[in-house]
């Protein structure tokens, strides 16, 4: 299903415009131009603001390009801005986010792809029922499950710490957040992988079975190499999703391990000190840079990721 939607996007099927400079065309292109300007405006404003000095911001208007371009706000946002408890800027949040992102993406995709594979090729009694619960679970507001998960993480983390004699904790650590991202990424990712694996010819699977390949053998030798595109789609989905997360970061980590989005919010919305709008906008852009880069590089695959999530198979 995912394939059908994305392939379909390639060709337009609407009514054909008649002449190049017909009034209809002018209206269409005019409207689209205005629309594009509206969507680009905030990005433009953020960029020009982040390149101005504070005196210029106080005097001028937010749309005017900077008279004197300065990169000082970017430097300050990255390494000096006050995040509430310390003065080392967004860099700390950036590295926290990277540390959260890498294991979360790997674990969530590994778990979900194996689940999807088990659902398609190794059905067991009740497997579809669990899958249905998973899909409906995606619609339950996080707020309903957030507190019991705090308790689960606190108790299991504490238990593991006691057993191993270390001060290992899940609550407030990066690993707790990895588990949370794995849990809440599961519905959409499992759906994604399940739909994709369904399209892999069953004969391949059967032939491998006859040859004596087991569960993991088939997964690593057939399913994984044949499904690299969907792994890339899943990665795009997870990298943007986890990078942009705010709620779980606030709840399940401590100030020292806050991800970038949370630190950004603390910098900009802190009530103390003079508001430095240029630094704020530089910080905002820095935080948005990772998902934006992914978006502009991945192009069509990003669209495919979100459409695959939306259009059920």
């Amino acid at each position: 299903m995912a394939d059908a939607t994305t392939n379909a996007v390639t060709e337009a099927r609407g009514p054909k415009p008649r002449r190049v400079f017909s009034s209809t065309n002018i209206i269409i292109y005019g409207t689209l131009l205005v629309v594009c300007l509206y969507y680009l405006l905030p990005l433009y404003v953020m960029i020009v603001t982040s390149l101005k000095g504070m005196p210029e911001i106080r005097l001028g208007n937010i749309f005017s390009p900077p008279v004197e371009v300065t990169f000082q706000p970017w430097v300050k946002a990255w390494s000096e801005a006050c995040t509430g408890i310390n003065w080392d800027g967004l860099s700390r949040g950036f590295w926290n986010s990277v540390q959260i992102l890498v294991p979360s993406v790997i674990v969530s995709i590994a778990v979900a792809s194996v689940s999807g594979y088990a659902l398609v090729n190794w059905r067991f009694k009740g497997s579809e029922a669990f899958f249905t619960i998973l899909i409906f679970g995606a619609f339950i507001p996080y707020q309903v499950m957030i507190y019991p998960i705090v308790i689960i993480l606190r108790d299991t983390g504490g238990f593991i710490g006691d057993v191993t004699g270390t001060n290992f904790r899940l609550m407030g650590s990066i690993w707790g957040l990895v588990i949370v991202h794995t849990i809440f990424g599961m519905p959409i990712l499992t759906l994604l992988f399940r739909n994709y694996f369904t399209s892999v010819p069953e004969e391949l699977f059967k032939a491998a079975r006859v040859d004596g390949a087991g569960f993991w053998g088939i997964y690593f030798k057939i399913m994984l190499p044949m499904s690299l595109p969907i792994f890339v789609v899943a990665m795009i989905l997870q990298v943007t999703g986890i990078w942009n997360d705010f709620l779980f970061g606030v709840i399940y980590t401590k100030p020292e391990t806050y991800p970038m989005t949370v630190q950004l919010n603390n910098i900009v919305n802190s009530v103390q000190g003079v508001k430095e709008y240029n630094v704020n906008m530089a910080a905002t852009l820095l935080t948005g840079l990772v998902p934006l880069t992914i978006y502009f590089i991945s192009g069509r695959l990003f669209v495919r990721g979100i459409a695959a999530g939306a259009v059920k198979g």
Partner: peptide, 10 residues
């Protein structure tokens, strides 16, 4: 592709 935090602050 941007987070709600970035959207809100912009």
């Amino acid at each position: 592709a941007l987070s709600f935090v970035v959207t809100g602050l912009a």
